[in-house]
Design a protein around this nucleic acid. Structure first.
Lengths: 334, 334
DNA sequence: GGCAGGATTTGAAACGTTCCAACATGCTGG
DNA sequence: CCAGCATGTTGGAACGTTTCAAATCCTGCC
């Protein structure tokens, strides 16, 4: 910047003004400075700006698992919102590991980021409170963190209800819920919703198959358990807590020669890209992922901008939607 | 830091020494300072460190599309390597958009990152040269960028050969290659490899079905074209330039009542997580994605550390591997 | 008791910006 | 003709570290 000033024959302060408040500078000076910048290929040193201004113009999203399409879509929403405000985004990936999560939080504190969006691993509430204590706003994404934090979530109970209702309306009376472990709030909430829907229909029954995780392998195992049942006692439909489970289940059904949806209708959850690409395109509960990210970022920006004192933490809850595809098509035979 | 110094009754310089060269400081002073740090909850200001030291301890990976599992795995490799060296990673997502890519490059220049890993959109060589001109090392990932850049790639010709050879060995003599547009180097290279393998077997034939993109929808379309052929003229196997195409193709085959691999064997490319989760688990060419990322980051660190003058740009080429699954199982009938 | 020499500690100068009070300059109206 | 004001420009003090030469403190030794 010093070189630019020298070349343009002005003072440092003027160069700074050209960069930050161009209207404070006469048009001729401005042009001269800009020419000098151009010729010298000057690039602002963001580090120094941050140090002096006290603002980092950077926020961070600490996701659970970047490999999961859900989080990448959320991240995209975050980036869009940040970009619109001229902020940079640090994307971190805790990979469900509390240690890594702490590592990143430490790093972000040191970087003095403007704010942190996070889908925390376990109950990290106290850790997050400490971060906020340092003056860094925190917004929790896709998890409820009580009234002391801004958060953005999707109503999982409603989602479960949506899925089960859809199956009930298609005439199914014996429905399996596949998901778990129930310590995961979302697996539990989706079950709660499904239970409510089933309870409302006389004669309908919900069979719960708890899984150890929400992945493809567990879906396959659930498929074996279902297929092992005598036809008379086998559910005619399954609601999976997650698309990975549903894909595993579907794969095993096809392999065992059972027809989907003929022998078993399947509903998944998340509506990942591959739900539509499955052998039998999967009906799934879709969450507004991009919007989730955008909204979270906007809440964060609001919290960062506003008076710390009179900030009210908001809990935004979005509603999921059902996307109907072939895996729950009405059986022609019924 | 000033507060810490005051509380511990030492000078600023000493606090800095405790932080950076603890062995230069007497053990009592060290403990006193550490206690003060603890009590005050002091957190280093990375921004100021960077400004003073001139090093940002941060590198960046600009990926084409975070939604693609390929890139998220690469990114993980990058992060592991960076973490090992105590560096932070900026993850950016150009989403195949040159404008966004430029935006991020500008931002990263301003941030004075230590180096940039990038899978560039179009031929952005001159832009990258400009970045490097500013003193920021650049390593190109999963693209060849000539001898003037370090790069890390996987041998696509070898991959194509691998896939085709596997099908030929299984007895297939009429094989379809599905992929495109051929302006994408990888689609072209994989075809080249497949051609070479087919040419080596007398009587074998390769039918090329060029697609407009490497996605599921195009795979479905290719499936329709194949299914439309009379059985006698239909290839008995298909090699897809990408797993998304393969999934689309598989979906349509199942839908049309054709058997995989009975009527059509399928090989994909990339070995994404969902290849294994498909209705018929997909044989696929697997690339060492994690290693790709790790290696790229290591090259970058080497370039950043070494003498700029005598740095030799390395082009590292990895070999792909074939993962055989049910979609190319030998037909019992043959 | 004084001193060399190593071990610690200190103080001040950077790093590249932004910010602000103060200083010029030119114009207006009385 | 000058006070008063708007408009541009300048200089220097921050921001929170690291770095390094210089100052100080010990220790053992003569």
């Amino acid at each position: 910047m010093k070189d630019v000033a020298a070349r343009a024959g002005v003072s440092l302060g003027t160069v700074s003004n050209v960069l930050n408040k161009p209207d404070r500078v006469s048009v001729q000076t401005r042009d001269r400075v800009r020419a000098a910048i151009e010729q010298l290929g000057f690039v602002r040193n963001e580090t120094a700006r941050q140090l002096r201004s006290g603002h980092s113009r950077t926020l961070a999203y600490v996701a659970l698992d970047s490999g999961n399409p859900f989080f990448t879509d959320v991240a995209e929403g975050v980036q869009d919102a940040a970009e619109a405000s001229g902020l940079a985004v640090f994307l971190c990936n805790s990979r469900e590991d509390g240690g890594r999560q702490d590592f990143y939080l430490d790093m972000l504190e040191q970087q003095r980021v403007e704010g942190i969006l996070i889908t925390p691993t376990d109950n990290a509430t106290d850790r997050l409170e400490r971060v906020r204590g340092r003056g860094i706003p925190v917004v929790v994404v896709d998890r409820d963190a009580g009234p002391d934090f801004c958060s953005v979530t999707v109503d999982d109970v409603a989602g479960g209800e949506l899925a089960a209702t859809h199956l009930l309306e298609a005439g199914h009376r014996k429905i399996a819920y596949i998901g778990g472990p129930m310590t995961i709030g979302q697996a539990a909430d989706r079950l709660t919703g499904a239970r409510a829907a089933v309870a409302a229909v006389p004669g309908a029954e919900l069979v719960v198959l708890e899984t150890a995780a929400l992945n493809v392998a567990e879906g396959r195992r659930a498929g074996e358990r279902l297929a092992g049942l005598p036809t008379s006692r086998r559910p005619t439909a399954a609601f999976c807590a997650n698309d990975l489970l549903a894909l595993g289940l579907l794969q095993r059904m096809v392999r065992l020669g059972l027809d989907v949806p003929g022998d078993l209708a399947i509903v998944g959850y998340d509506d990942i890209e591959f739900a539509e690409a499955a052998a039998v395109p999967l009906t799934s509960v879709s969450q507004p992922r991009h919007l989730l990210g955008r909204t979270a970022a906007e809440l964060l920006l609001a919290e960062a901008a506003g008076d710390d004192a009179e900030h009210r933490h908001k809990q935004v809850v979005f509603s999921p939607e059902l996307v109907v595809r072939a895996s729950t098509a009405l059986r022609p035979s019924s």
